[in-house]
Amino acid sequence: MLPSSLDEAVAALAAMPSAVPVAGGTDLMAAVNSGLLRPAALVGLGRISEIRGWQYADGAALLGAGLTHARMGRPDFAALIPALAAAARSAGPPQIRNAGTLGGNIASAAPTGDALPVLAALEAGVILAGPDGDRELPISHLLTGMDPMRPGELLAFVRIPLLHAPQTFLKSTGRTGPGRAVASVALVVDPARRQVRCSVGAVAPVPLRPLEAEQWVAGLIDWDGERTLADEACTAFGEYVAAACIPDQPGVELPPAAVQLRRTVAALSRRALGRALA
């Protein structure tokens, strides 16, 4: 099935609830080809032009779920949401970025999904189109399974507040070329709400938000002044984030791999904060 509008797609899914929507297919078709998944039918979303671009609504950007990573990586988009553009640019080789979409990244919900920590740090909302109309929920509710997608629903848009403030995305992989994240950190500065929001990807099934560390560091920043921090404060923030994301096990020494992961998260968080405030 190849619907050409969101309504048609929702109708197609309603008519055949066992059908699986497919956008870029970079995760889904790999699973189908290797025999892990045998969907009864596929609903192709590639012809729905309304979800392949973006628009503005009340100080936010409404991104179509069909936006490709390649599109998000371009300079015009990077001027709008720099951290998401950075994440999109780091996601796989060009072939994958040309096909893979924002919505697919959310729907696959892989722990290493590069866009996910950015969306979590931006406190994005997802808009689901369904047979009973649209509904919007926070990305974290969807990813954690607190409020999962219902049968017949389709991920249509992602609402992202436009902050006009520094934001960064840093990712550590096993090689110089594109690779799966060992750990990634997205950090946004929100001067309007006087917040620093940070999200760590790939270390847990869903992106983690070290809320206490965020509040602590937001309290150190002189929001009306220079908005800079001493190196020591950035370092302490990194340690704080890392300890929150990879907690100590009472009575057990951390295995060497966890120590290295914690060190990586600390370095990434420190660098992310340093760059955002530079």
Partner: peptide, 15 residues
Amino acid sequence: WLLPGGLSGAGEPGA
């Protein structure tokens, strides 16, 4: 600069 970790990676020249 192409630093360890790649073009869009986390490399920092100082480190």
